[in-house]
Amino acid sequence: MSHFRADIRQRAEELVALYPRQRSAMLPLLHLAQEQDGYLSDEGIAEVAVLTDTTPADVRGTASFYDMFHLEPVGRYVVGVCTNVACLLAGGEELLEHASVTLGCPVGATSEDGLFTLEETECLADCNLAPCVQVNHRYVRTTTPDAFDAMINDLREGRLDHDVPSHGTLIRVKRQGGLRVAKDDVAAERAVAYAARAARAEAAAQAAAAVEIK
């Protein structure tokens, strides 16, 4: 009855296991739900609520705090153009306007073919190559209108498929293996370490006292 595909569900369960409390897996799970559906569907939200032992309202409320989560369907490519100070000084606003013309949709909307959603972003921390553009959170480093148009063409024609997976897929490198350190072992290990440390501190204090007496 899972909404998640079997592989996604399995990864979801692995994720939950990485955290001391299941709710902590919220953000990675939401990324995963978005990876499957391209956005956060009601079904995806409901499944995350179960996996994190919360409610749909809670999950939705949490997700809506974060810009990267989309509660409505978006294009296959979410194109973000930064207009924050560094990019502003380098023509970010103008590039955003240009992008809007190229994609034929206003900022915040999805192009007619459903392929692109255009966003104005805050600083993307790539300010040496301003104005900065990301597609599905991959830097495409196209700072001029022409380069932007060429990049859009490449996307349309699948030439960037390798670099830019469809929207929602964030981390393509999977974690290999879960936690390796057993909780009980840690407690024991820590107890020994703390005791040893206390003994050393004690010894050091005695040594210092001895020096003082001398």
Partner: peptide
């Protein structure tokens, strides 16, 4: 004698 696990946690835009 030291064991440690590291988990990467992705942010989500805030």
């Amino acid at each position: 004698d030291f064991s440690v696990d590291v988990v990467m946690h992705p942010g989500a835009g805030a």
